[in-house]
Design a protein around this nucleic acid. Structure first.
Length: 280
DNA sequence: CACAGCACCTGCCCGC
DNA sequence: TGCGGGCAGGTGCTGT
């Protein structure tokens, strides 16, 4: 569920609190909450480690530790990182608890559907090894626009599939792909190699634009499955033009088209029937 | 290789 | 009121 803007909202919220915190204890309350490590691994390594930085690429974020390893956090569809009042009773779907005895705080990983996880990983050039397989996101200095445009323009795949491919450009999910394509007036099923360079650049610029605006709004919350580290919702849902707007008129002035919801690639897309013309 | 389909989960909402 | 089906912001595996 959370895409780059929601993950960034969590990352920046964490950063304000946890830098310098020393983990004293880790409890794994659900076996699916960790991947590629064991409870033993985490309990052996984490106690005594200080958090030195909170970093992110696309939808992956990680706590950088003072032993030069990273504790990766992926929110999946329903993951949350909360910094609760320790006296309150914990959330029903609490999966991992990190205790910080020195400041009497806890970092809670909460996840209803258990598609999210944490993983302890080694770094390679400042990025966790398992995160290196995804492409940089549009906000990173490592991001190479030219390479992304080339990849899309060489592909026989539908442009929306390419936007969702974290190996092409990371951080974009179903909401912001639909929003960017609406802003660029490109139908999601247009084929990558049939787009002009200017069209591809426009789509990517719109991805960056819409995600930047969503970060400023604290992300998109349809319900309490996405909240920041203080448990508060974001309000970008008010600014959505296409996603979830099926049946409503296209918000573009004088367009008079209807926002349509259609299923392909195993999921739904939302687009304007008029200003995002279907490929031939 | 690309790609479709489905699996992984829980909970909510809708129609009957 | 209850049950079954469909749906949800993501990822990754399988078989063709």
């Amino acid at each position: 569920m959370p895409e780059l803007p929601e993950v960034e909202t969590v990352r920046s919220g964490l950063e304000k609190w946890v830098i310098g915190w020393k983990i004293s204890k880790v409890e794994i309350l659900h076996s699916r909450a960790i991947r590629n490590n064991t409870t033993y691994d985490l309990q052996k390594v984490l106690p005594g480690r200080k958090i030195t930085k909170v970093d992110r690429r696309g939808k992956y974020m990680w706590l950088l530790l003072d032993n030069n390893q990273a504790l990766i956090i992926h929110l999946g569809m329903s993951g949350q990182v909360l910094l609760p009042n320790v006296v309150d009773s914990p959330h029903k779907h609490l999966r991992i608890r990190l205790s910080i005895a020195e400041v009497e705080k806890e970092i809670h990983f909460v996840d209803q559907r258990t598609f999210g996880h944490m993983t302890l990983d080694d770094l390679d050039g400042g990025i966790p090894k398992s995160v290196k397989k995804i492409a940089p996101d549009v906000f990173e200095s490592e991001y190479q626009q030219k390479a992304v445009v080339e990849k899309i323009r060489k592909s026989n795949s539908e442009v929306k599939k390419l936007l969702l491919d974290q190996g092409v450009i990371s951080g974009v999910g179903n909401i912001y792909a639909d929003e960017a394509l609406w802003r660029a007036k490109i139908h999601p099923q247009r084929i990558g190699k049939e787009l002009t360079p200017a069209q591809v650049v426009k789509i990517i610029d719109k991805c960056k634009e819409v995600m930047g605006q969503a970060i400023a709004a604290g992300g998109t919350s349809f319900d309490d499955l996405y909240v920041n580290v203080n448990g508060e919702s974001g309000y970008f849902d008010r600014s959505l033009a296409a996603y979830g707007q099926n049946g409503l008129p296209c918000p573009r002035p004088k367009c008079r088209g209807l926002i349509t919801k259609a299923r392909f690639m195993g999921r739904y897309s939302h687009f304007c029937s008029k200003c995002q013309p279907k490929p031939a």
